[in-house]
């Protein structure tokens, strides 16, 4: 009878709302990163750990709903792919903030550059999921922007790593270099998730429109 009740008055399955919520959290986590880089000593207003936990919870709910719903607004595997990419993005940015704190790394111009690019990427992803339902074409424009930003992040990543390798002479410098390399590697991983996200948006667009 559960089925009958749902048929007559279905619960609204808000997959797109949940995805937008995940997009909002992607922006929040990048803001936490930015805030930390601005003033490393101060405890950040946006608690990165809390943002990451909330985002995880949203994804758990989304997956649960997906497993409980037969008719979905988009192909179920596409919804899952978008959600997973956003979640991984958030996880990698969170890892970056954590590592900066644990390694006690001072902000560098490169790191500020990364955070600027990541912020643009997060807001493009958030806009893409917001437009997905009604304006697929606009969503694709945002996805294209995500891909452009990923190229810029990878360029900056290579430049940064090259600099790290060439400016290392003493052992303490080597240790600092390894720390920094670890952090930028995770930033690059976050950007890769952005590409996966953008590809999925384009797949959906090809299928639906």
């Amino acid at each position: 009878m559960q089925w009958f009740r749902n048929m007559v008055r279905p619960e609204k399955n808000d997959f797109l709302k949940l995805l937008i919520e995940q997009g909002n959290h992607a922006i929040l986590i990048v803001e936490a990163l930015e805030e930390y880089l601005r003033e490393p000593g101060k405890p950040t207003k946006k608690n990165a750990k809390q943002v990451e936990r909330d985002a995880d919870e949203i994804q758990r709910i989304l997956v649960y709903e997906l497993n409980d719903t037969f008719v979905t607004p988009l192909d179920r595997e596409d919804i899952h792919a978008l959600s997973r990419a956003l979640d991984n993005f958030i996880d990698y940015v969170y890892t970056t903030v954590e590592e900066l704190q644990i390694f006690q790394l001072a902000p560098t111009p490169a790191l500020l550059g990364f955070s600027e690019l990541l912020k643009d990427m997060a807001s493009s992803m958030q806009l893409a999921v917001e437009r997905l339902q009604d304006h697929g074409g606009v969503a694709v424009q945002h996805a294209t922007n995500v891909k452009k930003l990923e190229n810029q992040i990878e360029d900056l990543y290579r430049k940064t790593v090259a600099e790290l390798f060439s400016n290392t002479e003493t052992v303490p410098e080597l240790i600092e270099m390894l720390k920094m390399r670890e952090v930028v590697r995770h930033i690059s991983n976050a950007a890769d998730q952005g590409v996966i996200f953008a590809d999925t948006v384009m797949d959906i667009n090809i299928k639906v429109y």
Binding site: W3, R5, N6, M7, V8, R9, P10, E11, N67, D68, T69, F70, V71
Partner: peptide, 13 residues
């Protein structure tokens, strides 16, 4: 069928 199954879970498979 899609209309009638809109409240259903995948167990309807």
């Amino acid at each position: 069928t899609l209309f009638l199954a809109r409240g259903a879970s995948p167990r309807i498979n």
